[in-house]
């Protein structure tokens, strides 16, 4: 006799209440899937109420520009984190890219577009070296990319002699605006977001990334060449970092060897706020973009409200903790 049947109800529950509950449940499910998006909208609404300039087109584009570098780094990081790895070197690699690109024009004398290719190649190479250390050297990703963090930063300092390197106009374009209003960094961020989403959802490597992050052994026994895919994953992260380096150099109008210092942590934060799990197997490009925007909105809004940058760090830390906490609670409930 099944005893989980409740005893007969004396008062039948009104149908409307059930429907209302259904609706709340559905809303809750939608909010659950897009937790980061909900947070972003909530933050946006709060900022709009507190500061009249927040919703101006100019300010929104500013937020996009401010988010772009972290967002692009974070998109590269997304591949790595979904595969259950981590890449601490993305900030250093971004700086190295700008130095290499600037020097190829200034000291070697190749055409600017070729120099940009060299810069991208430097980022790809850095990622591949990390990938080789991880896939074939069996180093933990944390250690291999911690080493690359130091190596890439060191090379940027060695090559530049520790002083800023001038950038060609082609790099400056990455920091400019089209038709006087559309910032190229925002354009690049959106384009790379779509590219990352395409890679993750539609390509063999993308699907393999989820499988490797979800269960590496099962992926291997199913015929996925885990080592080769790891090379591709870290190569992608390096290349995305290189693009971020170009955007940053374009905005600063020079290649700074100390640029993007500590950005790897913001990139990881953006990925995690976007719903990815550091344990691997979960995450989306769209979530990462939203995560980067959440960070940018907080910084922008707190600036508008004249909150000191010291306090901003405290707030951002709290937001990271809250974002992941709400994610964990949500998963525990289901």
């Amino acid at each position: 006799m099944p005893t989980d049947m409740p005893p007969t109800r004396t008062v039948p529950r009104p149908a409307e209440q059930t429907r209302a509950q259904q609706i709340t449940e559905r809303l809750r499910a939608a909010a659950g899937r897009n937790g980061a998006l909900g947070a972003l909208l909530l933050l946006g609404a709060a900022m709009a109420l507190m500061s009249p300039v927040f919703l101006s087109t100019q300010n929104l584009l500013n937020i996009g520009v401010q988010a772009a570098v972290i967002a692009i780094l974070a998109l590269g990081q997304t591949f790595v984190i979904i595969s259950a790895g981590i890449d601490l070197s993305v900030g250093s690699v971004a700086a190295l890219t700008a130095i290499v690109t600037g020097l190829m024009v200034g000291s070697v004398g190749v055409p600017p577009l070729v120099a940009i290719l060299f810069g991208l190649a430097a980022g790809l190479a850095a990622g591949l070296v990390s990938g080789i250390l991880i896939a074939y050297g069996r180093l933990p990703a944390f250690i291999a990319t911690l080493a690359m963090l130091s190596i890439a930063r060191g090379l940027a300092l060695v090559l530049s002699g520790g002083v800023p390197v001038a950038q060609p106009a082609a790099v400056a374009w990455f920091g400019s605006s089209l038709w006087g209003w559309l910032p190229v960094p925002v354009l690049v961020m959106v384009a790379l977001g779509m590219l990352a989403a395409f890679i993750l959802n539609r390509t063999y490597t993308g699907r393999a990334i989820y499988a490797i992050g979800g269960n590496e052994e099962a992926a291997r026994l199913s015929g996925i060449n885990v080592r080769r895919q790891q090379l591709i994953i870290y190569g992608l992260a390096g290349t995305f970092s290189a693009v971020a380096g170009l955007v940053l150099a374009g905005r600063l109008a020079s290649g700074q060897p100390q640029a993007a210092f500590g950005y790897e942590l913001d990139a990881i934060a953006a990925v995690v706020i976007g719903g990815a799990s550091l344990a691997g197997g979960q995450g989306r490009a769209f979530g990462t973009l939203v995560g980067a925007l959440v960070l940018a909105v907080i910084r922008n809004g707190l600036n508008l409200l004249n909150v000191s940058s010291f306090w901003q760090q405290v707030v951002i830390g709290a937001v990271i903790a809250l974002a992941v906490l709400s994610d964990t609670l949500r998963k525990r409930r289901t």
Binding site: Y204, R207, A208, Y210, A211, G214, N215, E217, A218, A219, L221, S222, G223, I224, G281, Q282
Partner: peptide, 19 residues
């Protein structure tokens, strides 16, 4: 531990080998 990506969907697991 070896056969399934537990956190992934039925469809994703079924297509691991034929990917």
């Amino acid at each position: 531990a070896q056969g399934l990506v537990l956190g992934a969907s039925v469809a994703e697991n079924l297509s691991l080998v034929s990917l």
